[in-house]
Simulated assay, not measured.
Amino acid sequence: MPSDSVAVVQRFGRYVGEVPPGLHFKIPFSVDTVTIVPVKRQLKQEFGFTTPGASDPYQGSRQRDGTRETEMVTGDLNAALVEWVIQYRISDPRKFLFEVREPSETLRYASESVMREVVGDRTVDEVITVGRQEIESEALTKMQALTVKYALGISIDQVQLKNINPPKPVQASFNEVNQAQQEKEKLINEARRDYNKVIPLAEGEKDQRIREADGYRLKRINEAEGDAARFRALYAEYLKAPDVTRRRIYIETMQDVMPLIRSTVIVDGNLSGILPLMNLTPGLGAPQ
């Protein structure tokens, strides 16, 4: 007996108990019958397709049921071809063998019923694109509830959607619509990228200009206030001694202006004419 299985023993057809892996004995001559149940092995059922070489006859879709199982109507009255897989374990061998006739087949019918219900509550766009995870989660919850209600002795571990496509007659048109939507999303993302690139740059330049303007404003205000304060101080000194202040201002002004003059000419006020012969330019050895 495999290590992942238990043996269910029946004596004269009546359930006796479960025997774990190991060395055991049974009464011969058809008194005891043993059924091996893989309780630790994860089993699966496939809907809409079949894995080649599967030993479980209920694992994949039968030839006549493969297309029928996948054809579903969505909540907005569109058609979709839905393929999915359920993974489960046998949690109670006694219930699995004796409570329900053909529990694996019953599980297939219950799974198909639940999936049609869940898909029928959603639009075709949700089924094909954004609603896959919600469909898997809701279908898992409903299937687990049904297995408990029907006493199948089965524990469902996972529901996984596979391929979801529109019917073949409209598949080309649907693909064109999807391509258009993808192109739309692409353009929107590119526009958002450019927006996020340009707007922060413009905001930064705006803030920089504002700071520069504030700095220039403060500079001009401080300069104006300094000039005003200096003028008021000078005016106060002027009121005390007007002649001395005027002369001091004149001398200070000449000290600032005279170094900028390249040539200097001294003229006697009594002369009536000037002979421009003497070179008094500084740096040529002539006196100033």
Results as ranks from 00 to 15, higher is better:
P93C: 07
F98D: 01
P103Y: 00
E83Q: 15
P93V: 01
A80H: 04
R108A: 10
L77A: 15
Y88P: 06
I86K: 03
T74E: 08
S111Y: 10
S104G: 14
Y109V: 06
V85F: 12
A80T: 01
S113E: 13
Y88G: 06
E71F: 09
V85H: 11
D76L: 06
M115V: 00
E102N: 13
V114D: 08
F96E: 00
N78D: 14
E99K: 01
A110K: 03
V100I: 12
A110W: 00
V85G: 12
R94A: 09
R108W: 08
D92T: 02
I90Q: 02
E83W: 01
G75C: 11
E71G: 01
V118R: 04
S111F: 10
W84Y: 15
R101L: 14
D92F: 00
E117D: 15
I86W: 06
S111V: 07
E105K: 14
M72I: 03
E102C: 06
E102Y: 09
I90R: 01
M115T: 02
V114T: 06
K95E: 12
D76R: 01
E102Q: 13
L77M: 14
I90N: 00
V82H: 04
K95A: 10
V85Y: 11
Y88C: 10
R116T: 04
F98S: 02
Y109K: 05
S111T: 13
E71Y: 08
R94N: 08
E83A: 10
Y88T: 03
E83C: 13
K95N: 13
R101H: 14
F98C: 00
I90S: 01
E83R: 12
G75H: 07
G75A: 12
K95W: 04
Q87D: 13
S111K: 08
R116M: 11
M115R: 02
L77G: 12
I90E: 02
T74V: 09
I86C: 07
L77F: 12
E102A: 11
I86Q: 05
Y88D: 09
D92L: 01
R101T: 09
P93I: 04
E71P: 04
R94Y: 08
P93G: 07
E71A: 13
L77W: 10
V85E: 15
E83M: 13
A79V: 05
E105V: 06
W84E: 07
A80Y: 03
T74Y: 05
T74F: 04
V100Y: 02
R94K: 15
S111C: 15
D92S: 01
A80K: 03
V118P: 03
E105D: 15
W84R: 05
G75I: 07
I86N: 05
I86M: 09
V100H: 06
T106Q: 13
N78L: 07
Y109S: 10
T74A: 13
